[in-house]
Amino acid sequence: MDLSALRVEEVQNVINAMQKILECPICLELIKEPVSTKCDHIFCKFCMLKLLNQKKGPSQCPLCKNDITKRSLQESTRFSQLVEELLKIICAFQLDTGLEYANSYNFAKKENNSPEHLKDEVSIIQSMGYRNRAKRLLQSEPENPSLQETSLSVQLSNLGTVRTLRTKQRIQPQKTSVYIELGSDSSEDTVNKATYCSVGDQELLQITPQGTRDEISLDSAKKAACEFSETDVTNTEHHQPSNNDLNTTEKRAAERHPEKYQGSSVSNLHVEPCGTNTHASSLQHENSSLLLTKDRMNVEKAEFCNKSKQPGLARSQHNRWAGSKETCNDRRTPSTEKKVDLNADPLCERKEWNKQKLPCSENPRDTEDVPWITLNSSIQKVNEWFSRSDELLGSDDSHDGESESNAKVADVLDVLNEVDEYSGSSEKIDLLASDPHEALICKSERVHSKSVESNIEDKIFGKTYRKKASLPNLSHVTENLIIGAFVTEPQIIQERPLTNKLKRKRRPTSGL
């Protein structure tokens, strides 16, 4: 017993010596996670971090007073192994002897410093981030199933929210409404489509400006004509009531908005009720001829604005009016007729031209339509002016008669200019590109209106002035400009410049 007691005391002394060697000089306990400095002193990692955080910048070693920084600290694995072995020896000594260790306080702390507990403390002390800490805590505590279930439920809930957000973003663009038309193969669909197009076009005519009305009406008319041609002859009974509906809707729209509806009346003529396609083609032919005449008058307007600064050229074209007008009339009417003589009366030419125009518009179905009313009214106005011209010709002399006839021709041009508003800008460009020769010939008609105004002003003063002067240069210039014009009389060319000069002198006297 005595020997055993001596041996136990010796073992205890050895353990105490080893414990003092492996103590931390700051906390005076076994080193936890030993860290060595540049001066080869060993301290606990937790104690050194606490010391360095007390001051900004480098701190001093507690043993040798040298500078220490966080970067200079290094882990010493050898001392950590020695500490672990010492703890194992102490545990074995207690089991063999059955005696508690003399320094129970220190031993209890040593026992608490088992490797499992050290790992837990290291995970908390090290600044490795929240995710690494959570992982280490889960690994160190596998015995708690409640914690695992809560963490898994949190992760699953987070994943569910992310997935639901993604699915919502994908589903939202798919919620856009999609309209699908289910059509049938019955023959009544074509008639319904035609009526739908006509009503939609009328609404567009009321909303859209004048520049786009003609294009819309032309497209709708083409669509309706194609649909009529596709149907068989057996379905004509269905077409006639639908066309009557079209007429009623167009008349109502014309009564409500007459000014807006006139812009599309000329282009919509071939959508009118037709028994066969031949009647629609004839109407299209007549409309094309009318559009040609209207576009020519538009060309004359532009030329008149350009040549208004040259009064000499405008005056020299006075007698070329009849010849150029004959050529335009021959090209406007498709019928083959002989040219009228140069010395014939211009009023007779106008009456013949009106007689040619009237039969074209005397179809029984055309008179029933609303768009032809505008053309009939313009023709009636022309006839009224010609009836007035006959009365004026009986009273005035030959020279005054010529000037009045020219004035009436200008009035006719004004009437025809009203129809110019109905034609589109695209048709003007096509006419100029296809028929430049006709445009040059028809330019002379509009330029002549300037000389007509001068004659009217001469009649106000009650006299006409003449001068025997020749202007050969002007006649040559005008002959080169206009290709299809005829030779003019030299006496009238000489008379016109004198009248304008005298007018300039006598205007201030009349004002006084």
Rank of each mutant, 00 (worst) to 15 (best):
T150I: 08
I31W: 02
V122G: 07
N132T: 05
Y130F: 12
Q54C: 12
K168W: 04
K294F: 15
L165R: 07
I124L: 09
S146M: 13
T161A: 07
T164W: 14
T150K: 15
S140E: 04
E29Q: 08
D40E: 05
K20C: 12
S157R: 11
V154Q: 05
I31Q: 02
V178N: 06
A17Y: 02
E181R: 05
I171A: 09
K168G: 08
F79S: 07
R78C: 13
Y105P: 13
E75K: 15
L22E: 00
G98L: 01
S184T: 15
E181Q: 02
V178A: 05
V83G: 08
F93S: 00
K56V: 09
G57P: 08
D245L: 15
I15N: 00
S76V: 03
R131N: 10
N66I: 15
S184E: 07
C47E: 01
A5L: 04
V178T: 13
R78F: 02
T190P: 13
E143A: 08
Y179V: 09
R133I: 00
E143Y: 09
Q174F: 06
N53R: 05
K70V: 00
Q81G: 08
N53G: 10
E10V: 06
L6M: 15
Q169I: 03
N103P: 07
V178Q: 13
A134K: 11
H41I: 00
C44R: 00
L152C: 14
C64H: 04
A225N: 15
L156S: 10
H41E: 01
L73I: 01
E9P: 04
V8S: 15
E100C: 08
E29P: 02
L6V: 11
S242N: 13
I125V: 06
H117M: 05
R78A: 15
T150S: 06
K56S: 13
G129Q: 14
R7P: 09
S151M: 02
R131Q: 12
M128Q: 15
L28T: 14
D67E: 11
N106T: 12
L6K: 02
I171C: 03
I21E: 00
R170F: 11
Q54M: 06
S184I: 05
L6S: 02
I124R: 08
R131H: 02
L159E: 02
